[in-house]
Design a protein around this nucleic acid. Sequence first.
DNA 1: GGTATAATGGTCAAAAATAGTCAGACAGGA
DNA 2: TCCTGTCTGACTATTTTTGACCATTATACC
Lengths: 155, 155
Amino acid sequence: MAALSDAIERFIKDLLTDDTRVELKRNELAQYFGCANSQINYVLATRFSVDRGYLVESRRGGSGYVRVIRISASDVELLGSLLQRIGGEIGEENAKAIILRLYELHVVDVNEARLMQAAVSAEAISLPISSKDMIRASVLKSLVVQAFKNMREGK
Amino acid sequence: MAALSDAIERFIKDLLTDDTRVELKRNELAQYFGCANSQINYVLATRFSVDRGYLVESRRGGSGYVRVIRISASDVELLGSLLQRIGGEIGEENAKAIILRLYELHVVDVNEARLMQAAVSAEAISLPISSKDMIRASVLKSLVVQAFKNMREGK
DNA sequence: GGTATAATGGTCAAAAATAGTCAGACAGGA
DNA sequence: TCCTGTCTGACTATTTTTGACCATTATACC
């Protein structure tokens, strides 16, 4: 029983498998899924952000539209833009979005992505502890647990 | 005398006899047993801990869930010993040794091991910086660079 | 050309749907 | 009695969904 948002995300991504862009009618889509129009905006905001590798353009008024564009870039550009996006500090959500992007671009596979998420999770990086080794221990514990979860899952 | 917790434990374990994982709704389960929701968390914490051979994942919000995963006895042993060895803090060399062990045991493949090493490297976990997000950014940068190295390398 | 109107899409805050945490009450055994 | 394991309730955190209201644009009509 995936959430509505998940279904809408899936729907849009399916439309993006061949093409690198789709054009939608917000209201039609909302009608199709039987939800509030703003639900579409929610999905676009949470699942098709720049960090996740998408651009969204739209226009209101008569024959308006919402256009979703999958961003493609060369490896060098991608790496540069990701590092820049990370910057000097980054929150957990944005970090996850970036990892997800690496996954969708096939830079990492699903297990690698999970490991990465484990490494940057709030759980792994719990502060008030002030020694480098303590942080590392925390990170590594998360990684070990995640590695086991991966193994159970199979690729 | 058969405490409520025991009944809930039994119930979940029965669901796990065939499969190695179950998905639950915390509230439904609490309703079914006519208890406080937090009772479920108590059971999960006390009877389905890592050292008892279980992993628990969950998600909040609409169509949230609690997932319980059973792992094999030998894996429990291994996981337990590794976590114990990591302890409250650990140096880089020892951390690497543990990752190497995971690799030799085929828990992770070579790329995954490299990611893990990147995550716990001295470079990734540079202190004097005192915010959680700054540490995370540092870790993630290392991970991203390593992921790209992996890709160039091929498996 | 200027306006009114219809057709779109956007924003934001509140509600709903979940799950987690923690301190303390309780109960039975050492 | 005191300790330990159970259990609860109040409060918190997260994610999704909805609704009321706002903004923009095309077009029909004068």
